[in-house]
């Protein structure tokens, strides 16, 4: 199992969590890891763990097959969710959403990060990316 980008995730494989940046000058958070601060122009940023839970800020469904550089096969395309998830620091991260047809996505619902195999043309790979799924009630005892 390999993340699609080495700087994207931490805690693999059992406790995946998103990596981002925090500006040491103004305290703002970014995703993914950045080299400069879009808020205050500082170049002093530290890589931080943004966490693995958040709340759904907005969402949609991608119902047609994207052209490249999307890696998936257009002939076996299946619709997928996309949304922004607000993390504990307040930064909202864009993500694929798991559970289309199973969960009714609503703004404000609790979301949990999972690993998702990257779909590519011509067969399986060991690449994974991050995705969020609605948090199941039975899993919320920690």
């Amino acid at each position: 199992m390999k993340p699609i980008d080495p700087g994207l995730l931490t805690g693999l494989p059992s406790k995946p969590s998103l990596l981002g940046s925090r500006c040491t000058a103004c305290g703002e958070h970014f995703f993914p890891v950045q080299k400069g601060c879009a808020n205050c122009s500082s170049d002093d940023l530290q890589t931080v763990d943004l966490g693995s839970r958040g709340t759904l800020w907005t969402w949609t469904v991608q119902r047609f097959a994207p052209k490249p550089p999307y890696l998936g096969d257009p002939n076996s395309f299946e619709a997928y969710g996309v949304g922004y998830v607000e993390m504990p620091s307040g930064v909202k991260v864009e993500s694929r959403l798991l559970g289309l047809g199973e969960d009714d996505w609503t703004i404000g619902m609790a979301m949990q990060l999972e690993l998702e195999p990257v779909v590519v043309q011509g067969g399986a790979t060991d690449l994974v990316t991050y995705a969020f799924r609605a948090l199941r009630k039975e899993c919320c005892n920690d």
């Binding site: 991608q62 994207p66 922004y84 703004i107 990257v118 990316t129």
Partner: peptide, 30 residues
Amino acid sequence: NPDPASLGLPAWYGETGMMLTPQFFAMKLQ
């Protein structure tokens, strides 16, 4: 379907199917 690098964005952003204008319009509207 722009090249993510042309906008200073990482390759995975396009490869995993998140770099599409219709998605943005829909999510801003939602």
